[in-house]
């Protein structure tokens, strides 16, 4: 373990912040989705790093659960997109504001 924990956490922070930026600024629904996955990557890395440095399997366990949630989220979210595709032709977050009413 020559690499310090801080280095892993920093990479995790970079990935998480990039993901946040993507979620906040991109218009395409799909890229917003992908950015969320990117945020999850950062979180997963943090979990795994802490798990390794604290010598506890809870970190790995959290990654596995988070993977499960990510898979479920992607499946449902993309299914919603497919259903949405029947009604609209453009997948831009700023155009999809019908639910406001």
């Amino acid at each position: 373990m020559s690499i310090p924990l801080n280095a892993y956490l920093l990479v995790g922070a970079i990935l998480f912040s990039l993901g946040t930026l993507g979620v906040l600024m991109r218009r395409s629904v799909l890229i917003v989705f992908i950015s969320i996955e990117l945020m999850l990557q950062g979180v997963n890395l943090t979990f795994a790093a802490y798990g390794a440095f604290l010598e506890d399997m809870a970190g790995s366990m959290f990654v596995v659960i988070s993977l499960t949630v990510a898979a479920a989220e992607a499946a449902v979210g993309l299914a919603i997109l497919v259903a949405l595709g029947r009604r609209v032709t453009e997948f831009y977050v700023d155009r999809l504001d019908t639910l406001r009413w």
Partner: peptide, 8 residues
């Protein structure tokens, strides 16, 4: 990091 930047 670079690939993450590219992603968004």
């Amino acid at each position: 990091s670079v690939a993450g930047l590219a992603t968004i």
